[in-house]
Simulated assay, not measured.
Amino acid sequence: MKLALLSTLAAAAISANAHFTLQYIWVNGVDQGHNTDLRVPPNNNPVTDVTSTDLTCNVNGLSGAGVSTVSIPAGSNITFEWHQHDQRTGEDAISGGHKGPVQVYIAKAPSTAATFDGQGTVWTKIYSSGLLNPQTQQWATDVVNANNGIVVIPSSLPAGEYLLRAEIIALHVAQSYPGAQFVKITGGGNANPPKIALPGAYKPTDPGITINIYNNLQSYTAPGGPVWSG
C-alpha cells in the first residue's frame, strides 16, 4: 500500500498564533523524515470553512505534484508528529490552548496518490479520539501533545495507492461558526469500507464543529460519522 498523507487543522474563528502542522510520520516506529511524503501547506493557518476544498488536504493540498510516496504493509502502525515550527525545537508539538479531537481518514486513489485530489465520496474514517476525560477535560490533542499517537492501517484494505488524512479540530474558540503525505499499502485485503466526502460530510451545525468546550462538557460527538473497524 502506498500512502499520501494530508494534514488538516480545522477550527471555528480560531486565533492566528501558535498553530501547528503535521511535519513527520513514523511507520512501525521508523521516522520518515521532516516533511517527507507530505503535501505541505504554505503556512500554519487553520481551515475554518467546512465547505471549502481546503478542508480536504489543507491549502494547496489538492495536488501531489513533486511529493514522494512511502510504501507500507497493510496493518502497519502509523504515528503522526505535529509541530508549531519548521523543525523540531524541543518544545511541545501542540500549543496548550488547542483542545479538540484527532481524526484520521483514508481514501484509495483511482490511479496514483500523487495525481489524486481527494474529491468526492471517497474517505473512510479509520481513527477518531475526542473528549477522553470529562472530569479533567482531557482531549485527544493533549495525548498527541504528550506522546503523539498511533493509528493502525486496517489490514483488510486492498493494496494500492492512498491518501491518508490526519486532522485536528481546534475547539477552543468554537462557540460560534465563522497538507498531505503519500503512502503505498502492500499486502492488503479486499474490503470495501464505507465512504464520505470531505468537504461535504461536515456541517457548520454539527455538534462537533460548533460547541462550547468550557461549559463543563461531559461528552463529545466528532463529525464525520463512526470509525470503520477494518
Rank of each mutant, 00 (worst) to 15 (best):
G118D: 10
I126A: 03
D31Q: 14
A107P: 04
G130W: 03
N45D: 10
V144Q: 09
D92T: 09
N148K: 15
N45T: 12
N77P: 07
T48A: 06
L62Q: 13
A65S: 14
S52L: 11
I150N: 07
I78D: 11
V70S: 04
A146M: 14
N60D: 09
V40P: 01
N77M: 12
G90C: 08
I78K: 04
T124M: 07
V144S: 05
T36E: 06
P46H: 08
T141I: 10
L55W: 02
T141S: 09
Q138S: 11
N145I: 04
Q103F: 01
V30G: 06
S52Y: 09
Q119A: 15
A93C: 15
D86E: 08
V30H: 06
P41E: 14
K125W: 02
V144C: 03
T141F: 01
R39A: 14
A113F: 03
S76Y: 01
G61L: 04
T124N: 02
G64A: 13
N60T: 07
G130P: 01
W82H: 08
A65L: 08
S129L: 06
V50F: 08
V47S: 05
I150G: 02
T56A: 10
Q138T: 15
K125A: 07
N44F: 02
N45K: 03
S76T: 13
D86N: 07
Q32A: 13
V102R: 03
V122G: 03
N43A: 12
V70F: 00
D54K: 00
P46I: 03
S68V: 14
E81G: 08
I78M: 08
P41M: 01
I126S: 00
W123F: 03
H83M: 06
